[in-house]
Nucleic acid binder design. Sequence first.
DNA 1: ATAATATATGAACACAAGCTCATATGAAAG
DNA 2: CTTTCATATGAGCTTGTGTTCATATATTAT
Lengths: 120, 120
Amino acid sequence: MEQHMHDHGSALDTARQGMPADELLCDLADLFKIFGDTTRMKILFSLFEEELCVNEITELLGMTQSAISHQLKVLKDSKLIANRREGKTIIYFLADDHVRSIVGQGYEHLTEENHYDENI
Amino acid sequence: MEQHMHDHGSALDTARQGMPADELLCDLADLFKIFGDTTRMKILFSLFEEELCVNEITELLGMTQSAISHQLKVLKDSKLIANRREGKTIIYFLADDHVRSIVGQGYEHLTEENHYDENI
DNA sequence: ATAATATATGAACACAAGCTCATATGAAAG
DNA sequence: CTTTCATATGAGCTTGTGTTCATATATTAT
């Protein structure tokens, strides 16, 4: 006698097939984790238009220079941004166009699905 | 005398122009935060192939039923998955094809840029 | 060399987030 | 209506993460 209405077993197997290796799943989550912070998201958006030095980003976001530097390090370590020295200042820029497309996808998801100030 | 080699001011203004509202930035970060956990990523991948009930996902991931339920709630609250009741079991499925494309973008970023077991 | 400017970094702290454990809900079977 | 099966949920604990504060490094100017 079947106790479930949908097949319990073949569905599991199919799901198991498509599951990537644990390491990749973990790396993937770690990548998205980088985008999962408002400060970092703001930094990325600011670099969408122009390359900027630390002080400029600090001003733009109205935060501590230290806080910005810490987040810049996170972003740089994950290869999403890169920097070059120019005299005393260090200029940061996007390392990769994937950043734009990933953030763009999320942006689309929000602006399409959700309704920002649509009656109230 | 200019103390900076790149223009400090117009770049800032340009960056300020393209910066979306704080609320949207925050929502965007919150969206990516959902993808930034291995357990949730595994759940999403498992639902890429088949719709599954809680017990199946629990088996598949080899975790506590409680842990899974908690994460399913997070995913459901953020509208990435949905569910329907079928007798005693509750079946979860992807709510949106954006999920596939967002995860797909991240996946591409990793598999293209990085080199998985490419000579060690 | 010394001072000034620009950025980076480590430690400490506060808060968020995920898991576990116990328990609650809800549907179906006896 | 009581029991069983499937899932949900709240509290507590533990770990992770972002910010601040103080300080270090690095480059340029005096």
